[in-house]
Amino acid sequence: MMNNSEFILAIVFQLTQLLLVVLAAPLLTGWVNQCQAWLQNRSGAGMLQPYRVLHKLFHKDAVIAHNASWLFRITPYIVFGCMWLAAAIIPIIAVDLPFSGVADVIALVGVFALARMFIALAAMDIGTSFGTLGARREMLVSFLAEPALLMVLFTASMISHSTQLPRIVEALAHHQFALYPSLAFAALAFVIVLLAENARIPVDNPSTHLELTMIHEAMILEYSARHLALIEWASSLKLFAYISIGIALFLPHGIAEVGNWAGLPLAIVLLLLKLLAAGAGLAVLEVVTAKMRIFRAPEFLGTAFLLAVLGLLIHFLLGT
C-alpha cells in the first residue's frame, strides 16, 4: 500500500489537477473557437475570449422568469459540480489520483447522466416551447450517445481488466506497446459521441440561435448572468473532460507514473501538445462537416453505438 508521503504527493497531484482543469477548460474552448476562426478565414476573438465572457456574465444581474422554480436555480451549480468532478478524476498528467477511486468509468458516465438530467429538467421548468424542445432533443441525442460512450469505455476496461480510469491508463500507457484493433472501433465511436455530447456540428451547433437547429442552446435560453456563466463554464469543462477521456484512452503515452516527480514536466508538455492537437482536430472536423437534420442524428449516433459494440465484440473475438 501507499505510504504517507506518497499519499500526500497523490493529494497534491489531485489538487493540482482539480485547479488546473477548472482554470484551463475555458482556454481549450477558446482554442477550438480560434482554430475555427482561422480555418474560416476570420481573425477570431482570441483564445482568452471565454474568460472575458465569463467575467462579464458574472458581473451582470441575474434575470430569471417569473415562474422559475428552485430546480431552475440550483441546476447550474449541480451541473458545474458534476462536470468539475468528472474532469478532475480523469488521469491526464499523472495516474495516481486519490479521487478517482470514488467513481470508476461507469460512475463517470453516471455523473454525466446526472448533469444531463438536471439541465434537461431545468430547461422544462419555465415551460417555453424552446426549452422543452431542447430538453427533448438533448435526451434524444443522449439515449444513444450514453450507451455508446459506455461501450467505448467497456472496451478499454476489457483490455485493462479494470474499470478504474487510472488502471486503464496505466495498462494502456505503460505496458509494452501493443495495437488494439478493438480500440480503433472504439475511437471512431468515441469521436461521434464527443461531437454529440458536446453540442458540436454535425449534431448540434454551438453558435446557433436558429430555432430549428438548437439543442443545447435551446435548453439554456432562459439562463442569464452567473447561472449562464456557470453553465458555459461547465460546458467547457465537459469538453475538456471528453477530450481528456479521449487522450486517456487512445493517446495515454507519456503520462507520469505513480510517484514520478521527474516525469511531471514532460507529461505536462506532452499533455499540452495533445490538447492543442485535439482541439485543432475538433475545429477541422467541425469546419468540414455540415449540420445534420435532427432525425439523422439518431442514425449517426446509432452508428456510433453499433461501432462501439462491434469494438467490444472484436475484443472478445480476437482475444486482444
Partner: peptide, 18 residues
C-alpha cells in the same frame, strides 16, 4: 506477447471490417 507485425495485421483486419 504477439509479434508487432501480427498486431499490425490484426489492426488492419479490424480496419477492413470497419
Amino acid at each position: 506477447t504477439i509479434p508487432l507485425s501480427l498486431q499490425f495485421i490484426n489492426l488492419l483486419a479490424a480496419l477492413l471490417l470497419l
